[in-house]
Amino acid sequence: MDDADDLKVTDNPAAGRLEIRLGENLAFAEYRLEPDAIVFPHTVVPPEFEGRGVGSRLVRAGLALAEAKGLPIKPTCPFFRAYIAKRPELHERVHPDMRGALTAG
């Protein structure tokens, strides 16, 4: 195990984002609740977090949040979209309007 196992994802609904802190550094995935989905428009992972699976943790937390709310996701963030596109078992979790973007180009 490395110290990435100590990095905890927290939901900050007031800011509309999932966050992971490491010292003064903050990685986050922004989200916006809509009536029929959760939109994930932007993810930021500072260089200090690279190679630790932090971005993947944020995506998995986003998927868990969507599941808890009973909503599909709209992965407009390129990182979210690429993560899900590589995992066909997750495609059904994506809002029907966006599933075509998972296999395009």
Rank of each mutant, 00 (worst) to 15 (best):
V44I: 14
V44H: 13
V45R: 09
P46C: 02
P46T: 02
P46L: 12
P46D: 03
P47C: 11
P47F: 15
F49A: 01
F49H: 09
G51N: 11
G51D: 14
R52L: 15
R52T: 11
R52E: 09
G53A: 05
G53M: 08
G55N: 06
G55V: 10
G55L: 09
G55H: 09
S56D: 15
R57D: 07
R57F: 13
R57N: 07
L58A: 08
L58I: 11
R60N: 13
A61S: 06
G62D: 08
G62L: 03
L63N: 07
L63E: 04
A64W: 14
A64I: 14
A64F: 14
L65A: 03
A66G: 08
A66C: 07
A66P: 04
E67Y: 13
E67S: 13
A68G: 04
K69F: 07
G70H: 03
T76V: 12
T76R: 04
T76Q: 07
C77D: 12
P78T: 15
F79V: 12
F80W: 09
R81D: 07
R81V: 08
R81G: 06
A82G: 11
Y83S: 07
I84Q: 01
A85Y: 07
K86S: 09
K86E: 11
K86H: 10
R87T: 11
R87Y: 00
R87P: 03
R87E: 04
P88K: 06
P88H: 08
E89D: 15
E89Q: 13
E89W: 01
L90F: 04
L90D: 01
H91N: 06
H91C: 05
H91T: 07
H91D: 06
H91V: 05
R93I: 01
V94Y: 04
V94K: 02
H95E: 04
H95P: 02
P96W: 10
P96L: 04
D97W: 00
D97T: 00
D97P: 00
M98P: 00
R99T: 05
G100A: 08
G100N: 03
L102R: 03
L102F: 08
